[in-house]
Design a binder for these strands. Structure first.
Lengths: 270, 270
DNA sequence: CTGGGCCCTGCCCCAAGGTCAGGGTCAACC
DNA sequence: GGTTGACCCTGACCTTGGGGCAGGGCCCAG
């Protein structure tokens, strides 16, 4: 009785059925209606939407393009275009997809590099350097601080990074320099007015004067019009936690300056 | 005069400078503040944010993870976690990335298939079939209608699709059947009460009775509890544009039925 | 007549910011 | 000393592709 022949069925399917057939949600279909991707079908006496096979076909077409990542805003134009533009549009979309794929692969590579410990954000050469440090007597804290410094240098003066790295590598080959640097790390925990700081600054400045190539100079900083800002940020990194370092820096600068070497950065205008 | 020594500079950089150094926009930094990814730095007398090297370091770390596609909501937890969980989280994120890459590649492949004309949405075997049709005397409109029908069948009864396709392939090998089908296409433009329709229906039913294997039966439809709905949708596709087809369908069904073959679909409850 | 399963519309929500509005600060230039 | 342009502040609304919920209607079965 309820289905005399085909009445009520060939009249069209409801939105829920159409959604199930096309593999989308009811909400998605209504969304497509609002965007004009699918014409609103006729309504039955209850105001329900009734979809026919043609509507369903259109829905499947839209769904396929949307599922392929085509922005909804472009789908109507693509489906309603003549075959030539249809093909051209698809090629365009495909190229965008390729770009996004490449980008994601680059991200994944970056993450794989990140995953090898906290040694994030640095190229392999820098990681190798950090790996050598514990064997030379540096503590884990030391390594962390150096890593932070390297990250900062790379972010602030990328063009000088390789050079800076090379200088550190050479420095690690000089055992006396290494031991001085390690004393500097210890000095971080000293009181700012500890007399050993003066002593250490003198020794370090002396060593720099003996072998000026060890001076960590940031090449490329001078070419920046905001070089001074970057320099200040770098040299004073860590000083908020370790006030003794601030004094150490000042003393070393003073020693070198009185010996005729000015490593502080001057703005070009000065 | 304006920069006595380091005052006003070591005080920190502004948000715009920090953004430039980290390669993000000012808005992005403020966004990160609101999400608690970066602590708010101190403010100067004008209420401007002033960033120090530690803030900048954190910004670069956050930026690197965000740039790698890690959701902002997870970045704080990852950066503040111990190294073990840090590594685990990165592996997790990396796997998600791999999944998205594979998905995008699948989309691109789909698009490449789509780009070979409007022959969208169908597997290669179906496309090959459509390609053969013009050589057998079918018009472009015919091919379009068949393509639409195939898309619908595939969407509505995917498990019966291959079988359906095979039946059509066999049908194309029978020249007499092909010519009958082509008359059916022409019949779409006849008046619904054209007497040739009766004649055509009789001839077609006769041919089906001679070789019942040509009857396009949709296997799998009976296993669906909504099979009737799907059947109605499929058999009546195109009838809104071509009313003559509706009559043709009815007549053929009647002929076959009176010969003892009932191809209409009955609901199990009936 | 009442419950459950559909359907309707309209509103707010997500990520990761972009954009605009309206207003304050700073340094320099005329 | 006024103005200009670059920078900063907050807050509110926009985006994509829908998800979720509220409040109400329709219909079928017990």
């Amino acid at each position: 009785m309820t289905n005399g022949s085909t009445d009520g069925i060939t009249d069209g399917i409801t939105i829920g059925q159409a959604a199930a057939f096309a593999g989308v949600t009811v909400k998605t279909i209504r969304h497509y209606h609002r965007y004009g991707l699918i014409d609103e079908p006729r309504r039955d006496s209850s105001g329900y939407r009734r979809y026919g096979s043609t509507d369903l076909l259109r829905l499947v077409q839209v769904r396929t393009l949307a599922g392929a990542g085509v922005p909804l805003a472009e789908i109507a134009a693509i489906l309603d275009a003549d075959p030539d533009r249809f093909a051209a549009a698809l090629i365009d979309v495909e190229q965008q997809l390729t770009g996004r794929i490449d980008e994601l692969i680059a991200r994944r590579d970056m993450l794989q590099r990140l995953a090898g410990g906290d040694r994030a954000l640095l190229p392999d050469r820098a990681c190798a350097l950090l790996d050598r440090m514990p064997g030379l007597g540096f503590t884990a804290d030391d390594v962390t601080t150096v890593r932070e410094a390297l990250v900062l240098v790379r972010a602030l003066v990328p063009e000088g990074f390789d050079n800076y790295l090379a200088q550190i590598e050479r420095g690690l080959g000089d055992p006396r320099y290494v031991s001085l640097i390690q004393r500097c790390w210890r000095a971080g925990d000293w009181e700012p007015d500890d007399p050993r700081i003066d002593e250490l600054a003198a020794a370090l400045a002396d060593h720099f004067l003996t072998d000026p190539s060890l001076l960590p100079v940031l090449t490329g900083l001078q070419d920046r019009d905001d070089g001074a800002i970057r320099y200040e940020l770098l040299t004073h990194h860590g000083e908020d936690q370790k006030p003794a370092w601030a004094r150490l820096t000042v003393l070393i600068e003073a020693h070198l300056c009185s010996a005729g070497i000015d490593i502080t950065y001057q703005t070009p205008a000065d």
